[in-house]
């Protein structure tokens, strides 16, 4: 059911890809890398490659591993996925002088990310933590949808039924991500505006979004209750939802 290379793509581009959002949302996380100017490259043999660029307390992820300060190499997608699961350590193949960053600030950062994405139930009682955690989940899910829709065999089947357009996934009036579809290829947009939106699925609150992400309420029932609103080209939302079902398989 799961393709390990697709899982590696999800882990790299969606999970680690959420680190820039983490720094934006959590001042404590941002403080860990303040003043650091470093590029961490991830290279998975026969799999994805990307670089996290840390600069001035912010970060961005770019594809490829050119010009990285420290390069982490993984002999297989399985090894990379194990590392994300906390069952293995990365092997630096260059930039050994930055090992301190890797073992210090970077490890604390990924621990913080894990705390938000796999939270202890009691931590969710803190409204600020709850909001950050749910917001980060939206970013991770949005990015994972793109990876699965573009690379997973079943996900690609779903994407093959998505017409060109911009599908907005939102929480309330203020938070949204978008999936752009062109010729059945999906691209993630973390900061969409409403221009050109062809369909949307909007959760009425962080709580509804959280309950759906955690599988505590049913999306179909939530639509009936008005907690989830869909409109526009419904077949787009329908097929994105089918990919969303596979996100749960990959990242649960």
């Amino acid at each position: 059911m799961k393709d390990t290379t697709v899982l590696a793509r999800c882990n790299l581009y969606a999970v680690l890809g959420a680190i820039p959002h983490l720094l934006y949302l959590d001042p404590d996380a941002a403080a860990l890398v303040r003043g650091k100017n470093i590029r961490v490259g991830f290279s998975v043999k026969n799999g994805p490659k990307a670089t996290l660029i840390f600069k001035d307390g912010e970060a961005e992820m770019v594809k490829g591993i050119e010009k990285c300060s420290i390069k982490l190499w993984f002999p297989s997608a399985e090894k990379f996925n194990s590392m994300i699961d906390g069952k293995g350590s990365p092997i630096p193949v260059s930039g050994f002088q930055h090992i301190g960053f890797l073992l210090g600030a970077f490890t604390k950062l990924t621990d913080s990310l894990s705390a938000y994405l796999r939270p202890e139930p009691e931590k969710l009682q803190d409204p600020a933590f709850f909001e950050r955690s749910t917001t980060l989940m939206l970013y991770v899910i949005g990015r994972a949808i793109v990876q699965i829709g573009n690379h997973d065999r079943v996900g690609m089947f779903s994407a093959s039924h998505i017409t060109d357009g911009k599908i907005k996934l939102g929480i309330g009036d203020t938070l949204a991500v978008a999936i752009h579809c062109k010729d059945h290829h999906l691209v993630f947009n973390a900061f969409p505006n409403d221009c050109g939106v062809t369909s949307q699925m909007v959760f009425d609150s962080l709580q509804t979004a959280r309950d759906l992400f955690d599988g505590n309420i049913n999306a179909i029932a939530a639509v009936g209750m008005g907690q989830v609103r869909v409109s526009g080209m419904i077949s787009q939302v329908d097929n994105v939802n089918r990919i969303l079902d596979r996100v749960a398989i990959y990242l649960a």
Binding site: I220, V223, G224, M225
Partner: peptide, 22 residues
């Protein structure tokens, strides 16, 4: 919704029936 999966399942339900807005 308390006792029936999705309240009204299938094409006669508000989700599959595309009741927009519900």
């Amino acid at each position: 919704v308390r006792v029936i999966p999705s309240g009204i399942y299938g094409h006669q339900g508000p989700a599959e029936g595309c009741y927009i807005p519900v």
